[in-house]
């Protein structure tokens, strides 16, 4: 991911990001020392279960963490080389919707019910690109057609659309200003599988067309395999494994990633018993001292429980947060796939 020769095409670089929520004297450690880079035209899948810190990470990129209770404790988020966390409100407003756009999970609640869909697509065009309403409307209708919504329906209200159509409207809004970076937070989770297939197909086509970079947040490893170039697996606020899609899926290193794969029912071998990860995610107000996954990990040793993990590199692109790999012959059970 690093290396000087690729430095120029890095669109987004997060360095050592830590975000906490402080509620009633308790500190929820939502995101801890997170670093990642995203290159132009690539899709990075941010994978993990509820409470892993995926959405918090995405909201930080737009500096949208609600304060209070949320607080970005440390870190830098460089978008095209500029630190978002150091921007004032006016600068932020120029970035939001223009350089970075976001697609939220639930299309039912992320649209304004009292505005027509074309008005909602026009909004960001009017803010960022032109003051002519006629021109903005024209471009908004074009955008709606790109995502497969007929011009005749542009003046309808969100409640007149189905879930899949609403999500297309949300995508049209996000793409209206040709953002270089798109944050998609579980964009297809609320949709049925045949509609999900339509929307994913559309997003990939548009990505090709506009060369957009994307952070794709999901808990569905199947969707990741379909759309992502790179993968970062999050657990309890940390990235525990990151690499290319092939690295993480075919040469899995982290025991948690292995656990996620073992939990999935296999289509080929339907009788195989599932091997769930025992236990639950730790309470984010009382994270374990050492590796946060150690209490549920079958490979954990005394050292894992008591000392913080360090990231170990396996190749230029593949990293895992697991100290066991400091031992020479350590391997997990999951077989490598060539």
């Amino acid at each position: 991911m690093n290396g000087t020769k690729q430095q120029n095409d890095i669109v987004l670089s997060i360095k050592d990001l830590t975000v906490h929520y402080e509620v009633d004297g308790e500190v929820v450690e939502a995101v801890n020392n997170l670093s990642l880079d995203l290159r132009e035209g690539k899709v990075l899948g941010l994978v993990g279960e509820t409470g892993a810190g995926k959405t918090t990470t995405a909201l930080s990129i737009l500096n949208l963490i609600p304060f209070p209770p949320g607080k970005i404790k440390s870190g830098e988020i460089l978008l095209n080389g500029k630190n978002i966390l150091a921007m004032n409100i006016a600068e932020l407003e120029r970035v939001r919707g223009k350089d970075v756009a976001m697609i939220f999970q639930d299309p039912m609640t992320s649209l304004n019910p009292v505005l027509t869909v074309v008005d909602q697509v026009m909004e960001s065009i009017l803010i960022h690109e032109t003051s002519s309403k006629v021109e903005a409307r024209e471009r908004a209708i074009q955008m709606l057609e790109t995502v497969g919504i007929a011009a005749e329906r542009a003046d309808e209200y969100p409640h007149q659309f189905s879930g899949g159509m609403k999500q297309r409207v949300v995508i049209a809004i996000a793409l209206a200003c040709n953002s270089r970076l798109l944050l998609a937070d579980e964009p297809t989770t609320a949709l049925d599988v045949t509609i999900q297939a339509q929307v994913l197909d559309l997003m990939l086509k548009l990505k090709e067309q506009f060369n957009t970079s994307m952070i794709f947040i999901t808990h569905d490893l199947g969707v990741v395999a379909q759309v992502c170039d790179e993968v970062a697996v999050m657990y309890a606020g940390r990235i525990v494994e990151r690499g290319t899609l092939e690295d993480v899926f075919n040469h899995t290193k982290h025991p948690y990633t292995e656990g996620l794969f073992n939990s999935l029912p296999s289509i080929e071998d339907r009788t195989a018993r599932l091997r769930p990860i025992p236990g639950l995610m730790p309470d984010p107000t009382q994270l374990p001292l050492g590796c946060t996954f150690a209490p549920r990990c079958s490979y954990a040793t005394e050292a894992c429980i008591n000392t913080r993990q360090t990231e170990i590199g396996f190749s230029e692109s593949h990293f895992a947060l697991c100290s066991r790999y400091a031992e020479k012959n350590f391997v997990i059970d999951r077989k490598e796939i060539d």
Partner: peptide, 24 residues
């Protein structure tokens, strides 16, 4: 057929020819 082909499979390159049905 289209329902089954739309299942995203958690495997690199597993998503063979998908039948994407139009409309709703």
């Amino acid at each position: 057929q289209s329902l089954f082909s739309a299942i995203p499979v958690a495997k690199v390159g597993a998503n063979k020819e998908r039948i994407i049905i139009k409309g709703e």
